[in-house]
Nucleic acid binder design. Structure first.
Lengths: 132, 132
DNA sequence: ACGTCTGTTATACTTATAATATAACAGATA
DNA sequence: TATCTGTTATATTATAAGTATAACAGACGT
């Protein structure tokens, strides 16, 4: 598997899994309908517990990014990803506010901050492409 | 005091304090040299423990946003705020990546994401102004 | 000098979360 | 029948968050 976990990080393992899977979908390394490794095999690959993987899958399933077929295991949501709802707008605004505040205090301009945001977005969504 | 704490939130109280104080500096509600309430009085005002406030102050002192004079208590850093160093760039990139990934998956465009970033920054830095 | 405020440190306790360790169950597959 | 899947349950350990007291040294005003 292409995932990497930092056991020394202060951010919980299941959160790292959730973030990396969402980034995988954003970069189209994971496409709608793609199968994901079973909770047991992924846990074994990463050297962590089954339940830690399961917790990440549950969160992504709850948010509508994954589906479970009881047949071929877990699959990336095939029928359209969830859109930009009020809950996400609030989550986004809260996260951006914290980052923007420290950026402003440290002397980073609004233009720089917006440019950095765009740069990160672009780098993320063009990760799986080789030819230009 | 103008601070508000959500005891039901999943984000730690001391983190809420750190974030709000940085936002206060960014919005110029807190200016360099301004005195901050003592750990005991602020804890009493918010109905929380002395050590929780102290932990927030320690973090901000460590990062160079606050100063302690052993005289008039804690004060907003008077001699210039810390700039944009490598550590902050890494922290910013990591935070933006998580937000940008989910935004992209949910169908928000790069332009929208950048615009939202700029909007949050602007709203934050123009909070203490009334006349235009 | 005295009392009071300041930040700071130390200790102990409770609570909640993260993570692990087993175990078992029901459905699907070969 | 085996073996895989997700799911659920229970128990345990480890760590972080928050609280509760207590004490100390420096600075201040009286």
């Amino acid at each position: 598997m292409w995932m990497e976990i930092d056991l020394q990080s202060e951010v919980p393992i299941y959160t790292q899994l959730v973030d990396q899977l969402i980034e995988g979908i954003a970069s189209e390394q994971l496409k709608p309908g793609d199968p994901l490794p079973s909770v047991r095999s992924l846990a074994a690959d990463l050297g962590i517990n089954l339940h830690t993987v399961n917790k990440a899958y549950q969160i992504l399933k709850q948010d509508g990014f994954l589906q479970v077929h009881r047949k071929q295991g877990v699959v990336v949501q095939p029928g359209g990803m969830p859109g930009v709802d009020a809950a996400f707008r609030a989550k986004l605004a809260r996260g951006l506010r914290t980052l923007a505040a420290e950026a402003a205090v440290r002397g980073m301009s609004e233009a720089e901050f917006a440019a950095q945001s765009a740069a990160v977005y672009r780098q993320l969504t063009t990760k799986g492409e080789e030819t230009k």
